[in-house]
Design a binder for these strands. Structure first.
Length: 497
RNA sequence: GGUUCCGUGGCCGAGUGGCUAGGCAGAGGUCUGCAAAACCUUUUACAGCAGUUCGAAUCUGCUCGGAACCUCCA
């Protein structure tokens, strides 16, 4: 089997993945800012890196997957008064930041579970690591790469760039052009425009604040990831993931901070997923085109023609390579929904096939083709997690599975060994690696009993050629979302829509 | 303006020098009491121009169009 190769944003090259410690992988992925509801665009990195996580586990690595919750910074909720000093109920009426953070954290977790994402090993919060962040800032100041101004602390990017390759990750150079373009409005505490905040002094009305050596304030955005990744994964770890839009300035700043504190670029492999777009434009606040996940699941957004289930969205995302942009459209989502259904039904049929007991395949050519399609799955995953190609191969196997099911080709066409391998790979890939699952509920024994009865009555009607009755049963069930399927062997199957 | 990336058939989307991607949709057929599903067959491609090469969607240059980042951003 080939080795896992990943496209490392830091070197812009596809590299063989070799963990720092054999058998162990440390992976840090930038998590959500829980000041609002997640939208479709947010789903992409968490599904992408869930598959990375699952694949590493599948390869036998012990993985520590750390994904933070950003719950510090500016927080406010629309439609809610910040503070009412007059009201006697002031304590209850006023915005309690942790309440807000809890609400959106819960909602985020709910969405992640809907997507069947595995929980990270550690999910640290920024507010739970203020001490670590302050310590790190102190170290950077001691090293002479940060300065204080009016209770805020800034990282000295210009000085850093003189000694280290600032901009390597994001591919930008801190040249004179930037220098000259800086505009110093009198208020600016920064020495240079490109300096970024490590600590911000809290204005009186700011509700989130912590004591620090520089006065009351709150941490800068970038320092939390550096502090938490260092604490849980060490000064140098294997994989750092996140959206491409975080490459600059967020990840570039993380590199600068960790380089000063820990003498290391924090991670060896930097993986970035691309954006989800709407009509070619990135889904995000600035374009006012974001569709919340709750709206996706419920179909309640003007852009949506229908609701899309979590698995449809997951499949939709996995049908393209994670480094390509993915354009949202109803047509594409509907295509994904149908495609997933077809693939999943074939998978369910496959798992029910009995062992055919054929030591050798009766159709050697087909047997060889099936084997080759199966073995390519590992090659594709090893090639920078090419889930699009994995799914394409699986779709090529669908007609083979369905033909065996419908007895268009004999079960013995494939050898027993190939059949076993096919079952194993479909289960491994669909459920364990791609993380798909059955969304329809048919666990209700009573309902199944009723359906069996209806199917029985319909069967009798059909024998009598009483098609009015048989069609009535089928049509009315269909209206309820239950689809009857007359199989070739005379049996009747059903599926829930 | 700077940096980087992209432009594939009706839609979505793989593919980076020669070999059918795949899904959805369309057409024809098989099966079926009819239907659905399934199976078989099948139409429409590589933004434009020039170059390199025996050969380019794939490499080079130019043109046109679009995007991301440079400010919070998944």
């Amino acid at each position: 089997m080939s080795e896992l190769k990943v496209l490392n944003s830091y070197t812009r090259q596809k590299e063989v993945f070799t963990p720092i410690t054999a058998g162990l992988v440390g992976m840090y992925v930038c998590g959500p800012t829980v000041s609002g509801e997640s939208h479709l665009g947010h789903a992409r990195p968490f599904i992408t890196f869930d598959v990375v996580y699952r694949y590493l586990l599948h390869l036998g690595y012990k993985v520590r997957y750390v994904r933070n919750i950003t719950d510090a910074g500016h927080f406010e909720e629309e439609g809610r008064a910040a503070e009412d000093k007059i009201s006697s109920k002031a304590v209850l009426e006023k915005l309690e930041p942790m309440e807000l953070v809890q609400k959106y954290t819960n909602l985020f977790h709910w969405a992640m579970h809907q997507f069947n994402n595995l929980d990270p090993s550690i999910e640290p919060t920024a507010t739970g690591h203020i001490v670590e962040q302050i310590e790190m800032i102190k170290k950077i100041m001691e090293a002479g790469y940060a300065y204080e101004a009016n209770g805020s602390v800034y990282f000295d990017v210009k000085k850093y760039a003189e000694h280290y390759p600032y901009g390597k990750l994001s591919g930008r150079v801190l040249d004179e052009q930037l220098e000259t373009s800086r505009e110093l409005d009198g208020q600016d505490e920064k020495r240079n425009k490109q300096d970024f905040a490590l600590w911000k002094a809290a204005p009186p009305e700011h509700i989130m604040r912590w004591a620090s050596p520089w006065g009351e304030g709150f941490p800068g955005w970038h320092i939390e990831c550096s502090a938490m990744s260092t604490k849980y994964l060490g000064t140098e770890f294997d994989i750092h993931g996140g959206g491409m839009d975080l490459q600059f300035p967020h990840h570039e700043s993380e590199i600068a901070q960790s380089t000063i504190c820990n003498k290391h670029v924090p991670a060896r492999y930097w993986l970035h997923n691309n954006m989800i777009t709407v009509n070619g434009k990135k889904m995000g606040k600035s374009y006012n085109n974001q569709i919340k996940l709750t709206e996706m699941f419920a179909g309640t957004h003007p852009l949506l023609e229908q609701a899309y289930s979590p698995m449809t969205i997951r499949f939709f995302i996995l049908q393209t390579h994670y480094r390509s942009t993915l354009d949202f459209s109803n047509e594409a989502l509907q295509a994904a929904e149908k495609g997933l259904k077809r693939l999943w039904e074939a998978y369910e049929h496959l798992q029910k096939f009995p062992d055919n007991g054929q030591a050798t395949a009766s159709d050697k050519e087909l047997d060889a083709r099936v084997n080759s399609l199966i073995r390519e799955l590992d090659e594709f995953m090893n090639d920078d997690f090419n889930t699009a190609k994995v799914l394409a191969n699986m779709f090529e196997l669908v007609p083979v599975i369905n033909s065996i099911k419908d007895k268009h080709i004999p079960a013995g066409s494939l050898s027993s060994g190939t059949m076993t391998l096919l079952k194993k790979y479909f289960r491994d890939y669909l459920e364990n690696i791609l993380g798909l699952k059955n969304e329809t509920l048919h666990e209700d024994g009573k309902l199944n009993g009723v359906l069996d009865l209806l199917i029985d009555i319909r069967k009798e009607a059909r024998t009598r050629k009483d098609y009015a009755t048989s069609d009535k049963i089928r049509n009315q069930l269909q209206q309820l979302g239950i689809l009857l399927k007359d199989e070739k062997d005379g049996s009747v199957g059903y599926s829930f829509q």
